[in-house]
Amino acid sequence: MSSAELGFFVGAAPGLIYLVKGMAGFQREIVAAQRMAREGGDLLDMHFSFALKADYLLRPGNFVRSTDGPGLRRAKLHLLSVRRKFLATQAIGALMVAVGAFLGTLLAVIVR
């Protein structure tokens, strides 16, 4: 492995770790929301429903539907409450990966 490749991976590593930690935190929020829905007698299936994911990410106004039961509505509102933080965390992590990989590669080439 060349020094530039090593610099790339070393530079990108902190951003990747930040992204994975953010995804793990969001996964915990999904599990909590699924528990809320189950307690209300409903089912929240974020993992297998592409339409639900698309509504959550792209159309948050359509995420909570009028046909949702009280437990499902509570779970979806909980997920919407953490949406902005999750998206900001992912954007910051992506920026950290891009900048870190660039700087790591640049430094590896310069120092070599």
Rank of each mutant, 00 (worst) to 15 (best):
A4V: 05
M46C: 07
S81Y: 05
G93A: 11
T89A: 13
L107A: 06
L52F: 06
I110N: 02
L103I: 10
A33Q: 02
R65C: 07
H78Y: 14
A88K: 15
K53Q: 09
L52P: 01
H78D: 00
A88Y: 09
I110M: 07
G104T: 06
L6V: 12
L79Y: 04
F102N: 13
L43I: 15
R74E: 05
A98L: 07
S2C: 03
A91C: 12
F102D: 04
S2K: 11
E5C: 08
Q34A: 03
L87S: 11
D55T: 01
V10Y: 01
K21W: 03
P14Y: 12
L79F: 04
A32G: 04
V109N: 09
G11P: 03
G100N: 03
D68K: 07
L44T: 00
G104I: 06
S2Q: 13
I110T: 08
H47K: 10
E29R: 06
A4L: 06
K76Y: 05
G41Q: 06
A51R: 14
F50S: 14
P60T: 07
S49R: 11
I30H: 01
L79P: 05
L44M: 15
A4N: 08
G100I: 11
R65G: 08
R112T: 10
G22E: 03
L52M: 11
A24H: 01
A37C: 02
S81C: 08
L79W: 03
R59T: 15
R112Y: 07
A75Q: 05
V31I: 15
V20L: 15
V20R: 06
K53F: 14
M96N: 03
A75T: 01
K85W: 10
R74K: 14
V10D: 04
T105W: 05
F48A: 14
R73F: 04
A75V: 01
K53Y: 10
F8Y: 14
F102P: 05
V64W: 02
T67F: 09
M1I: 14
A32F: 14
Q34D: 04
M96T: 11
A75N: 02
G104N: 05
D42R: 05
S66H: 10
V20K: 13
T89R: 15
V97T: 09
L44Y: 02
A33M: 01
E29I: 01
G7K: 02
R28S: 14
R65A: 15
F102K: 01
L106S: 12
R38Q: 11
A37G: 06
D42T: 07
S2L: 11
M36H: 04
V111Y: 05
A108Q: 06
E39A: 08
T105P: 02
L107N: 09
G71Y: 04
R65N: 04
R38H: 06
V99K: 00
G40C: 08
S81A: 08
I17N: 11
R83G: 04
A88F: 11
F8T: 02
A12M: 13
T67Q: 12
L95E: 13
S81R: 09
A98K: 01
G22L: 07
A51T: 08
L87K: 15
G7V: 10
D45L: 12
G71L: 00
V10R: 06
V31S: 12
L103R: 02
L19H: 11
A12G: 12
I92K: 10
V111D: 03
A108K: 05
K85D: 10
D68G: 15
H78N: 05
S2N: 14
A32H: 04
A24K: 08
R84C: 01
